[in-house]
Computed example of a mutant assay.
Amino acid sequence: MAKLKCAIIGSGNIGTDLMMKVVHTARNLEMGALVGIDPDSDGLARAVRLGVPVTHEGIEGLMRMPRFSEIALVFDATSAKAHATNNTLLQAHGKKVIDLTPAALGPFTIPAVNGNANINESNVNMVTCGGQATIPIVYAVRRAVQRLVYAEIVATISSRSAGPGTRANIDEFTETTSKAIEQLGGAERGKAMIILNPADPPPIMRDTIFTLSQGGEREAIEASILDMVQAVNAYVPGYRLKQNVQFDVIGDNAPVRIPGIGLATGLKTTILLEVEGAGHYLPAYAGNLDIMTSAALVTADRWAGAVLAKEAA
């Protein structure tokens, strides 16, 4: 079966987990290269054992590789700052780019929300781990109500699953996720927070979503949320509700003040999620990384399948 070659820039936790997913689960992609900057990284060592070509000389090393011209798609699992440079170089060579950083140079993409809407864009952004986990739920609430006034998400992850790249992008995480809550989730105002939990043993990823809506029935909201959980679970098997959806009425006697909107009332919905990793490379508690790599692979695999089908026609 024909497959397209892909490369992954970043040999850390995210890049290595993504490589393992491509090797073991991708339908339309195969590894063409793993790129890092640390010659002693575990990711590069694993790639060598798998027979995947490697370079520790970054994007420049990738472009010097003898079979670089055969690579159709590149995943960037570095940092928001590095992605700007990487994308410019890759676009000059006509490569499809899947951005796993919070740089957000391309359109936001969450498989369960906007599916294939951006599949043909030269650069697509996978938002953030917190965004991939929570924005589908925000969107699920929005489609069941007349007005989604506000949505706030709190992503809690084990500090062990937050490597140097994640820690260097905390500000970008909150900014990018907040924007995507509004642009993709449909909230008039969005807010995102991330908590690094140092507990031992490490806890799996937990996400809390609060929404304030108007003009919707509780039963319809809950049904929409449950449908969305199933949709995300189809490509992230460890994605699930932690407990039943909770509702509270915010009445005229105790309105809440929302920046940019003012005093507001309505139905408060609280959704508690957990995301357990699949264990392809990372431990099960690193669901925050697993949902990013799973979403990126689904997006890339769909694009590659479409390209291969067109070539075969």
Rank of each mutant, 00 (worst) to 15 (best):
A2P: 15
I8H: 08
I9T: 13
I9N: 07
I9Y: 05
G12P: 14
T16F: 01
D17C: 06
K21Y: 07
N28F: 06
L29P: 00
L29C: 04
A33I: 10
V35G: 13
G36C: 06
I37T: 15
D38T: 11
S41M: 08
G43T: 02
G43I: 04
V48S: 14
R49T: 12
R49G: 09
L50V: 05
G51R: 02
T55P: 00
G58N: 08
E60T: 09
G61C: 09
R64P: 07
M65C: 06
P66T: 06
F68T: 12
S69N: 15
A72M: 14
L73A: 03
V74D: 00
N86S: 13
N87T: 14
T88K: 11
A92T: 07
H93M: 09
K95C: 03
D99M: 10
P102L: 15
A103W: 14
G106H: 07
F108N: 01
N116Q: 12
V124I: 14
N125I: 00
N125S: 09
M126V: 10
T128P: 02
A133D: 15
T134M: 05
I135S: 01
I135G: 01
Y139P: 11
A140T: 07
V141S: 07
V141D: 05
R142C: 06
A144D: 08
A144T: 08
R147A: 09
V149F: 03
V149R: 00
A151Q: 11
A151K: 10
T156M: 10
S159R: 14
R167L: 15
A168V: 10
I170R: 05
T176S: 03
T176F: 00
E182P: 05
Q183W: 12
G186K: 04
A187I: 02
E188P: 03
I195H: 11
P198M: 05
P202S: 15
P203H: 04
P203Y: 00
I204E: 15
M205S: 15
I209T: 05
T211S: 06
S213Q: 09
Q214L: 10
E217P: 14
R218Y: 10
A220F: 13
E222W: 12
L226E: 03
M228A: 12
Q230E: 15
V232Y: 02
N233D: 15
P237A: 09
L241V: 08
N244I: 12
D248T: 15
P255S: 04
G260E: 03
G262Y: 01
L267E: 08
L267Q: 04
L273I: 07
L273R: 01
G277M: 11
A278S: 15
A278V: 10
A278I: 08
H280V: 14
H280K: 07
L282A: 06
A286C: 04
G287Y: 00
D290M: 12
T293N: 01
T293M: 04
V298E: 00
T299L: 02
A300P: 00
W303N: 09
G305A: 13
E311V: 10
A313R: 14
